[in-house]
Design a protein around this nucleic acid. Sequence first.
DNA 1: TCATGACGATCGCAAATTTCT
DNA 2: CAGAAATTTGCGATCGTCATG
Lengths: 351, 351
Amino acid sequence: MTRRPTLKTIADRVGVTVSAVSLALRDDPRISATTRSRIQEAAEALGYVYNRHAAGLRRGDSGTVAVCLNDLSNPFFTEFLGHMETRFREAGRMMLFCHAHETPSIQARFIRQMAEHGAAGLILVPVEGTSRADLEGPRVRHLRDFPLVLISRDVADTAFDRVINDDERGIRLLFEHLYALGHRRLAWLGGGGDTSTAHDRERSFRREMDAAGLPIDDATMHHGPTSLAFGDSMLDELMALPTPPTAIVCFSDVIAFGVLAACYRRGLRPGIDLSVTGFDDMGAAAYSAPALTSVRVRTDLIGDRASELLLARIAGDRQPAVREMMPPELVVRETTGPPPETGMLPPRRRG
Amino acid sequence: MTRRPTLKTIADRVGVTVSAVSLALRDDPRISATTRSRIQEAAEALGYVYNRHAAGLRRGDSGTVAVCLNDLSNPFFTEFLGHMETRFREAGRMMLFCHAHETPSIQARFIRQMAEHGAAGLILVPVEGTSRADLEGPRVRHLRDFPLVLISRDVADTAFDRVINDDERGIRLLFEHLYALGHRRLAWLGGGGDTSTAHDRERSFRREMDAAGLPIDDATMHHGPTSLAFGDSMLDELMALPTPPTAIVCFSDVIAFGVLAACYRRGLRPGIDLSVTGFDDMGAAAYSAPALTSVRVRTDLIGDRASELLLARIAGDRQPAVREMMPPELVVRETTGPPPETGMLPPRRRG
DNA sequence: TCATGACGATCGCAAATTTCT
DNA sequence: CAGAAATTTGCGATCGTCATG
């Protein structure tokens, strides 16, 4: 059980001092090229592995950043993860990762632990219900002046950077598309829990309805978990209404996929008998049967920009906090079309 | 710009020594209850944050484990991530995460860096083409006696623990199901690149065909990326054959979903005009239109067991390496059914 | 003066050791 | 001399300072 070699091991072997080894391994010109290569060869031969704990202790920066997400089962969020991981890897930083499961206590613990680990910054999709106090209160004093960027979800009045999607615009694009097709009876299947995203999208939906002079029937407004099962389970209820909606606007693609599954079972043809829209435009949206009309949230832009902001903060940028909104794009596919002729809805069963 | 408080800061404030503070914060009984609480209050008041670099340097264990995956866009792999993250969080360990994008150089760099960061162990889905030398060669000497568990994919002859799915059994379950339904012309859409999973599943498929006395037509055997696009693009080609297959066996759910999308476009009814099977049984399989027949890979069991093994190794377990296979389960849904009557294939178009 | 590299202090914490009641 | 408390040492790397040819 030989211990891991250290700078001293190498130094003894080569016959120089520890600091010479330290410099040599970092290619410092103060060490001559010949001794440098002798040292580097010895390090290689000994199987030396750099110890960042020690270096970090001395230097202050451990070379990690922390990322905390909430819903790994939703591919939409793992898209963020992918983009950011790439950016941080390119910047030579490792990622401390946490899956908070929408649980405040997990998030709180992680915020403390990543600080203990010396993470240089944090990217956070705040768990639902996260308030300003959770990020700036006395229990998280270490976050003061700490590089922290919120993505995807906003937290009101906070003094941290935020990079989010322009949900209002997204909903407007969808509404205008459906309205132009002739839809007047629209249902809303909300999700996203108690987050800014949930509130912004629903509020925007209501506002668009109002602005268009369309009445909002509570029986067509629902909120539930952001899951396939929720979308799947709500279709029957909506179609059982005296005057069922001709279009269903879903909080997210995941919910919309659930609605499509239910449509299939009922023999309803999405885009013909009923229009369905998603939100996020995750990769799978182009391959549902039929392909889903959705709003593309630019996870790439958001992830890149958030990483960039964070790295700048880590590098010492002290600008006032920004709140940036990335513009989403409407992607029209096959699940939207003109409403069926009134009263002519043909609920064929498949077979 | 006041610096972060340290044990010394607290010690000075309370008027005790640094070691007293160290012990008190760890609730050591050697410090009297009263001073202990005085110290803890002072720590709280000062906003003290534990420094694991320093502690880790002294103790040897940094409290992290590393996880390296390859395909975040495939929800199947993020299922692993979720299970393991939970287990490690419960064990009080943070996760250093890497997305290797099937790129050996990224994986190699991560294997080094996580060691530099003092990760206590590593869970790895090896990138395609990873060989024994990549894990045990001279360039990765630090992996000798290092807690490392491979999941999902095997690496031949390696001396590390592995927890993988029993792919042979999975394919057999699918084949037997299709055979019993009456299918005799089966196509294979392979994926998974150059991994043990890819090889095992295809080999098993061929073996089942052979064992049943069914000829294997090269025109029905394909290999491509594990993507929706691949499945989507292959259907036309397969159906254009003189005698098209009556069933398509896909390497994974993702590919199968692509096939379903193409079926929809062609007006082919999965489960009636053509049978389609997936593999993995990710969450979305139950909600495709129609719902996908698949083989459930127990990501929960694999993830849990791998975490458990790793934690045991970290705790000092020196048992010989194990290779454990978790049994998958057939999940019959709607995309499989008896083959259509010969020659009676009705390629209706939707509309 | 310059190039090279030796020396010792230091980071924050924890464990071993010593000193004090 | 037992037990509590204070002191010292050292983890592994980095950095400023100093010495040598």
